[in-house]
């Protein structure tokens, strides 16, 4: 074809089309989640948070077995011992090993945090999802939506402390009561977020397109709505878990939470109050440190997750 062109410099010949091939998309194809992991790995604070969290979780599982004492074993002769190679975190006034008690307490905290977050998640997604999906679908739909939202509003208005105290009166104070108390009002926030997300997503053109293509309601929810909310749901979870943990410590500190002899960071801190002046600093220091570290770890990791998962924070 180019034979009929006049003679010129080779450089000024028409370019070989091969130069421009395979240039369209050269970067590897990353799914949303792969991309998110990359973003988190690049975020220092998030990595620190993640490492701390992993350490706390691992130690809460194996920690108590690393020392030859159990969390409830008393030894009155060894009360209030400072840190030593026998008792790494010292002992309390009843001679119980603080290391063992700290990690036993960690279990309680994590169980409460994760359990109440999961309950929030299930109830919140169900109520918020139904409410948001039904809104705007005829009269019945709107009625279901406003009925559910009224419940949410009522619960939102009740202070959780009141609920906890009431429940403690009715039920036996303890782990289960605590989880129930925290979940009764806790799911409301999740429900609101999920409903808001669904309302927003429903208007998105890709959902309209799916509707127009004849995709079933179930598939629209599973393939279009849920995957696009997962980021925000996970971020919300990483912030509700530490809230629940803190609530547990706080309530136990006040004597409203788990009861002795079960170890909890809150009860340990409470027990330590009287001994501060006698110089047994480790009694208060370790529970307080653990509460702070856990809060920090969750929040640092949660912030990183938010940056990576929340579509509104691009770049």
């Amino acid at each position: 074809m180019t034979n009929s062109l006049p003679e010129t410099d080779a450089l000024f010949r028409p370019a070989n089309p091969a130069h421009f091939e395979n240039k369209q998309i050269s970067r590897p194809s990353l799914s949303f989640w792969q991309d998110a992991v990359l973003k988190i790995v690049k975020n220092k604070m998030a990595v620190i948070g993640f490492v701390l969290l992993t350490a706390i979780i691992v130690l809460s599982i194996i920690g108590p077995y690393l020392v030859p004492y159990s969390q409830s074993e008393q030894s009155l002769t060894e009360g209030n011992l400072p840190l030593s190679s026998d008792h790494w975190f010292g002992t309390d006034d009843l001679g119980r090993d603080m290391w063992a008690r700290i990690w036993a307490g960690a279990r309680i905290s994590l169980i409460i945090g994760i359990a109440s977050a999961l309950i929030d998640l299930v109830i919140g997604i169900t109520v918020g999802g139904v409410s948001g999906y039904m809104a705007g679908r005829g009269k019945t739909g709107d009625r279901i939506d406003s009925f559910l939202m009224r419940i949410v509003e009522v619960l939102y208005g009740i202070p959780y402390l009141l609920v906890v105290i009431l429940l403690m009166v009715i039920m036996e104070p303890g782990l289960v009561t605590m989880i129930i108390a925290l979940s009764i009002t806790g799911w409301v926030g999740m429900a609101r977020i999920v409903r808001g997300q669904i309302l927003q997503l429903k208007q998105q053109e890709f959902v309209l397109a799916a509707e127009k293509l004849g995709t079933s309601h179930g598939k629209i929810i599973i393939k279009h709505l849920l995957p696009n909310m997962m980021g925000i749901i996970i971020v919300t979870l990483t912030f509700t878990i530490p809230q629940a943990i803190f609530a547990e410590s706080f309530l136990s500190f006040l004597g409203l939470g788990v009861q002795a002899p079960t170890a909890s960071w809150g009860t340990m801190a409470n027990d330590a109050l009287g001994t501060i002046l006698s110089g047994h600093w480790w009694r208060l220091f370790f529970p307080a440190l653990m509460i702070s570290l856990t809060m920090f770890a969750f929040n640092a990791f949660g912030d990183g997750l938010q940056d990576a998962l929340d579509p509104r924070s691009k770049n």
């Binding site: 799914s31 998105q204 053109e205 890709f206 995709t215 079933s216 696009n228 579509p311």
Partner: peptide
């Protein structure tokens, strides 16, 4: 649709997006 950014589900691969209607029917 108008907005090429909002009209495709960001969590689905292009193949799945195109196959959506094929599946539905």
């Amino acid at each position: 649709f108008q907005d090429p950014h909002a009209s495709l589900n960001p969590r689905m691969r292009v193949g799945e997006i195109i196959a959506e209607g094929i599946d539905a029917y």
